[in-house]
């Protein structure tokens, strides 16, 4: 049967596997109410409210309300953190032997990581929608037109996809949930905080500003911020944001694919 497989059949076969595994990953979340409530619902809402009310009184941004300044940062931070779910999910499947079961079935080798990434994107989208709703209720507004708003969503989704693929690479590289979690804590907090996520980088000391202003997170946040606040001069950050996203993809996808193939040594 497999000998007669053309490239199109192979792709549609793998897409079916991907759809089945995406559904399985989402079903797992529905079956885990504590995770569903804390990670998927409470965390984005909590982040929005905490940062808006704690920092909102202390930080003054010229020409914008802090909430409008903050929300693009929170969108990007949430999708960036989301990549750790991708890594932990894959490491868990490796640890529990489920990856072996999937690999002993006639399943396309790329369907397991892609199904994981797609499920995490769905969860990201749900979290983003929820955050927008909560932020709207306390006064957040998109200041750009519909095109700019769509573009903002597009930039967040592109970054979310890239960083989730990086998460897939981490999962297959580190292979243990405990290692992934340790790495995530050490890497994700500095990466998202040492950026323009919560405050303008101009307020940081020189050495930190040098790091923060070149961070991919800053590029993505600044791009989304320009689109949300409808401020001019977002061109260079847009270029950097798209370039960073594509670069992360270009590194993560082939290496993750190699990692998954190397499981069969």
């Amino acid at each position: 049967m497999s000998a007669t497989f053309g490239p199109l059949e192979r792709i549609s076969w793998g897409l079916y596997d991907t759809a089945v595994l995406t559904w399985r990953n989402l079903l797992r979340v529905l079956r885990n109410p504590i995770y569903l409530v804390t990670e998927v619902v409470i965390q984005p809402v909590l982040f929005t409210l905490l940062f808006a009310y704690i920092f909102g009184g202390a930080i003054h941004i010229s020409g914008a309300s802090y909430l409008d300044f903050l929300m693009p940062g929170i969108f990007v931070q949430t999708t960036t953190f989301g990549s750790m779910n991708t890594a932990v999910g894959l490491a868990e499947d490796l640890e529990k032997g489920l990856m072996d079961r999937f690999r002993s079935l006639p399943v396309a080798y790329w369907a397991v990581p892609v199904g994981r990434v797609l499920a995490d994107l769905v969860l990201d989208a749900f979290g983003l929608g929820l955050m927008v709703a909560v932020a709207y209720a306390i006064g957040f507004r998109f200041h750009g037109d519909a095109g700019q708003t769509l573009a903002a969503v597009g930039v967040v989704v592109l970054w979310g996809f890239s960083i989730a693929c990086f998460g897939a690479l981490l999962g297959v590289l580190l292979r243990r949930t405990s290692t992934v979690q340790a790495f995530g804590f050490v890497a994700m907090f500095p990466l998202t905080f040492a950026s323009s996520t919560f405050v303008p980088v101009q307020t940081m000391p020189g050495w930190l500003r040098a790091f923060s202003s070149h961070s991919p997170i800053t590029a993505v946040v600044d791009t989304v911020r320009h689109l949300v606040l409808d401020t001019p001069g977002g061109g260079s950050s847009t270029l950097a944001a798209v370039a960073w996203s594509l670069a992360v993809l270009a590194v993560s996808v082939p290496l993750a694919a190699y990692g998954f193939r190397r499981l069969t040594r």
């Binding site: 049967m1 497999s2 000998a3 399985r24 079903l27 797992r28 079956r31 885990n32 529990k96 032997g97 489920l98 072996d100 079961r101 002993s104 079935l105 006639p106 399943v107 069969t264």
Partner: peptide, 23 residues
């Protein structure tokens, strides 16, 4: 060489139950 075909011919149950515990 024919790993993909073999996967349709063989069923495997390992030493550790490879099940999705949440499902």
């Amino acid at each position: 060489r024919e790993a993909f075909a073999v996967r349709s011919l063989i069923g495997l149950t390992g030493q550790y139950a490879a099940l999705d515990e949440l499902l």
